[in-house]
């Protein structure tokens, strides 16, 4: 556990070294949120609500869903794993007495925590002050939302590690990365909430774990679920987390025999 926490901290420290990059990440995130909000303003036009969702709710969805619950940057892990395999740097990781998926998880958590604190939070505060942000529907909803955030993080990280591990078979990590990016952008509800999806696609999205990354937590936050439904949704998310964890363990056990360490 101590090693795991230390690795998270190391990733956090590493991120903090890139000062100029971090400034641009905040700027980039601000522009992205601005674009999302503008699109929803245009879509709503003069309507106070669409399908029972108000513009103010959608702005809140964009703000939180586009920052701390966003799946976009999490696909970087696929690129990173691919690069370590291509260059043979994976060898250095495998020399350490820690499970490789666990190292990946710690590293991603460090990056994510840094992002939350130094990119997401400032962006939410700045844009919230300009456009307004709705509070959670109730204290109970807030508690369930926090639970969902943990599940969201776990599902996102595990999906990234799972797809990253496929780089052991598919040498071109770039295609995997874009596959994951596209898949998650749609099915997490990160771009468009699932309540606006056509029926068939909505059913697909509900049957997969990815909606727990953005959509389910936001539906709870905004009070679109009552507390009982929120509890059920949280339980289902935990189930998905366990299933993905088992998948990662299985794929890693297969990948171990597949390791080819490039270079001398």
């Amino acid at each position: 556990m101590s090693a795991f926490l230390a690795l998270i901290r190391a990733a956090f420290r590493r991120e903090s070294e890139h000062h100029s990059r971090n400034v641009f990440r905040i700027l980039g995130s601000l522009v992205e949120i601005l674009a999302r909000i503008s699109i929803w303003q245009a879509a709503f036009g003069a309507h106070p609500a669409l399908y029972g969702i108000t513009l103010s709710q959608m702005i809140t969805y964009s703000l939180i869903g586009g920052t701390i619950l966003s799946s976009w940057d999490a696909t970087m892990i696929v690129r990173d794993v691919g690069a370590t395999i291509r260059t043979g740097a994976i060898g250095s990781s495998l020399l350490r007495p820690v499970g490789y998926p666990l190292m990946l998880l710690a590293d991603q958590l460090g990056v994510r925590l840094f992002d939350w604190l130094l990119v997401s939070l400032p962006v939410i505060v700045i844009m919230g002050l300009i456009y307004g942000i709705e509070p959670p529907a109730s204290l109970g909803h807030a508690m369930f939302f926090l639970g969902h955030v943990v599940v969201s993080l776990a599902i996102l990280m595990l999906t990234g590690i799972l797809i990253g591990l496929f780089s052991f078979w598919v040498f071109d990590a770039h295609s995997l990365e874009w596959f994951m990016r596209g898949l998650l952008a749609v099915l997490s509800g990160g771009l468009v909430p699932i309540w606006f999806f056509p029926k068939g696609l909505a059913e697909v999205a509900h049957a997969l774990p990815f909606s727990w990354i953005t959509y389910q937590p936001m539906a709870v936050y905004l009070g679109e679920r009552d507390l009982a439904a929120s509890a059920l949704s949280l339980a289902a998310g935990c189930g998905w987390t366990a299933a993905l964890g088992a998948c990662v363990a299985f794929v890693w056990s297969r990948a171990c025999g597949q390791v080819v360490v490039q270079g001398g």
Binding site: A10, E17, R96, G263, G264
Partner: peptide, 10 residues
């Protein structure tokens, strides 16, 4: 010799 085990940024 050709790879590092150290943490590059730390």
């Amino acid at each position: 010799g050709q790879r590092t085990q150290l943490w590059w940024e730390l």
